[in-house]
Each structure stands twice: as C-alpha cells, then as structure tokens.
C-alpha cells in the first residue's frame, strides 16, 4: 500500500472506482434512512412542501459541520488529525463578535473569524511540523487552550451579534436554497479541485501515505503539513461565521465536540485514519448521513442517546467495512 501511493496517476482509475462504490454505498444508506422516515412518518412525507423543506433543513444542518469536515479530511489524508476544530470555531466565533470587532462591521467580523482560524491553524501546523509534536497532542493542547482563550475573551458570556448582514447569512435564500448550503457546496467543490487537480492535493496524499518517501521525492513535508493545518483552521473560520449567523450569537462553548463529528464523517466517507487516502465527496456524504439520522430521530421524537448509539454503530460498521476491504485487497495481491 505504501509504495503504491507515489505513482498516483497509475492508481487513479482503480482508486476512483473504489471511491465510487463507497459513495454509492453511502447514497444507499441515505436512501434507506429516507425510506425509514417515509414508513415511520407517512403523514409528514405526504406533503411535498414539507419534504422539500426537510431536504433543505438536512442540508442546512450539515453545512457548518460539512465545511469543517472538508478541512479535517485534508488533515487526515495528510497523515494528521485536528482535535481543535471545535475550539477554533469557538475562538473565531467569540473573537468576531466582541464589541470591538462588531464596530468594524460585517467585513471586519468575517476578516477576524478567518484570520483567527488561519492563525490558530498556523500555530498547530508549526508545532507539529517544526516543534515535532504528535498531531494528537498538539491539537489536543490547542483544544483546551483555544476554548480557554475564548472563555477569557467572552468573559464566559454569550455574545450577541447585532450585525444584520452577518445574521442575514443564515436567513438568505438564493433560488429557494439557503446561502449556507451554497457555502458548503463552494467549499466542498474547492476542496475537491484542490485534492484531485492540484499538486497541493498530490503532495497531501503523498505525505500521508509515506512521509519519508515523500521527503525523499523532494516534497517539502514540513511546509505542506503547516499548510494543511492552516487549511483546516480556515475552514473553521468559515464555519464560525456560519454558526454565529445561525445562532445570531457566539459563546466559548459553541461547536462542542465538532472534532468528533468531523472525524467520524471523514472516516465513514472513506478517509483512511492513518492517512494517504480519502475523498471530499465521501466526507460530505458522511456528514449528510449524520445530518439525516438526526432529522430522522427528530421527526420520530426519539431520544438523543439512542441517536448517539446509532451514530457510534455506524462509525464502527464503516471502519470494519474499510478494514475488511483493505485486507481482502492485500490478500489478493499476495496471491
């Protein structure tokens, strides 16, 4: 597997194939969830207006976490992990809703959120690439520290956004579809192009597959690592604006456990936790599966704890399938 990663062009057709199968599988899961929804709540699904709105609600609920997952997918493919995404969102959200930042208007708030995201990502990246900290530890430390700073800045209070432009992001619809969904689509499309059609993407796959081989092949592994965490931070900055707009406020506790949701979505989307492989489309489908499950449980008035158990089961199942496929592939090679 390791040696295979480098000649990416040669592997392209088969990898695409496998990805397509997996994505079809995820679409199958989505269809199954919708069918369960139709069976359990036929009276709701018989109203076309409700169904249309429900699709938009599912997409909208997936939008912010989807953006985070795109960044997370890059980090994981590059052989890392970013546990600090929820904390970065909280810090960016809180920072961009302080009284001082709000006085600069919507542009100032957006600039601040993005800069905080990029800045924290940069610190993560430098610590990992040049400080030689294990990604798990570095970003875990950042998780704690960034939430602490967010609590410090907000004085543990909920900061209400009084900026109409920011608050309108969540309510704006273009051709009947929420702006938030367009943002997710744009980020996912940009992520897909970056991963599949640029040297940045190839380098990411290369350093995640085999860091040493990538280094010997002339890739600046350290710089690439830093950039990956910056990218993840940037996605968090974007998500912070989306969430702040949705809740018309920000607080240090926001985006709680987003890191786990984003990692889980990336994993069930077919990203290898050890790095070197993964797809953006799969990650987005992963987010949609979770968002659809939440919706299914909500319309059936089922308790959140059952939902969490089902989510856990799905993650385990996805990884088991991944391992099984991996093993059967390697066995094929041995023969």
């Amino acid at each position: 597997m390791i040696t295979e990663t480098l000649p990416a062009e040669k592997r392209e057709p088969r990898r695409l194939d496998e990805g397509t199968i997996r994505n079809l599988g995820l679409i199958g899961v989505l269809v199954l969830l919708v069918i369960i929804g139709i069976i359990t709540r036929p009276e709701l699904y018989s109203d076309p207006a409700w169904v249309r709105n429900n699709i938009l609600v599912i997409l909208q609920q997936a939008s912010a976490i989807g953006v985070v997952t795109v960044g997370m997918t890059f980090v994981i493919i590059g052989g890392g992990i970013d546990l600090s995404v929820g904390a970065i969102i909280a810090l960016a959200g809180v920072w961009c809703t302080t009284v001082a930042t709000q006085s600069f208007g919507a542009a100032g708030m957006i600039f601040t959120a993005l800069m905080v995201g990029i800045g924290v990502g940069l610190v993560n990246g430098l610590l990992i690439a040049y400080g030689k900290l294990v990604p798990f530890i570095a970003t875990l430390a950042m998780l704690v520290a960034a939430r602490g700073l967010a609590a410090q800045i907000s004085d543990k209070q909920t900061q209400i956004s009084t900026n109409e432009t920011i608050n309108a992001i969540a309510t704006t619809r273009i051709f009947g579809i929420p702006l938030l969904v367009y943002i997710l689509a744009a980020v996912a499309a940009a992520g897909w192009v970056l991963l599949n059609r640029t040297t940045f993407g190839r380098r990411t796959v290369a350093i995640g597959g085999n860091e040493e081989a990538a280094r010997l092949a002339g890739i600046n592994v350290k710089r690439q690592t830093v950039l990956l965490y910056v990218l993840s931070g940037l996605c968090c900055g974007i998500a912070a604006i989306m969430l702040t707009s949705q809740a018309t406020s920000a607080q240090a506790g926001m985006a709680n456990l987003y890191e786990l949701d984003a990692i889980a979505a990336a994993i069930i989307g077919g990203t290898l936790l050890s790095g070197g492989r993964g797809t953006i489309v799969g990650a987005v489908f992963g987010v949609l599966v979770f968002s659809t499950i939440t919706n299914l449980f909500a319309i059936n008035n089922l308790e959140t704890e059952v939902q969490n158990m089902v989510k856990g089961g799905i993650i385990v199942a996805a990884v088991l399938i991944q391992q099984f496929r991996y093993q059967s592939l390697t066995q094929l090679f041995k023969k």
């Binding site: 709701l44 709105n53 429900n54 609600v57 909208q60 609920q61 909920t158 969430l243 949705q246 809740a247 018309t248 406020s249 920000a250 607080q251 506790g253 926001m254 985006a255 709680n256 939440t294 919706n295 909500a298 319309i299 059936n300 008035n301 308790e303 959140t304």
Partner: peptide, 23 residues
C-alpha cells in the same frame, strides 16, 4: 408531542430548534 435535547449553548439550541420545528 416532541422533545429535543440541546446542550445549553446557543448553536446547540439553534440546531435542536431547527429539528423540532421541522418535526
């Protein structure tokens, strides 16, 4: 008729309410 649990945060409340209103 329907009960959703949030997490005492603003965006938790926003998401739970969105789900509840849809249900």
């Amino acid at each position: 008729a329907n009960r959703r649990a949030a997490d005492f945060t603003v965006n938790g409340g926003q998401q739970a309410a969105t789900d509840l209103l849809q249900a």
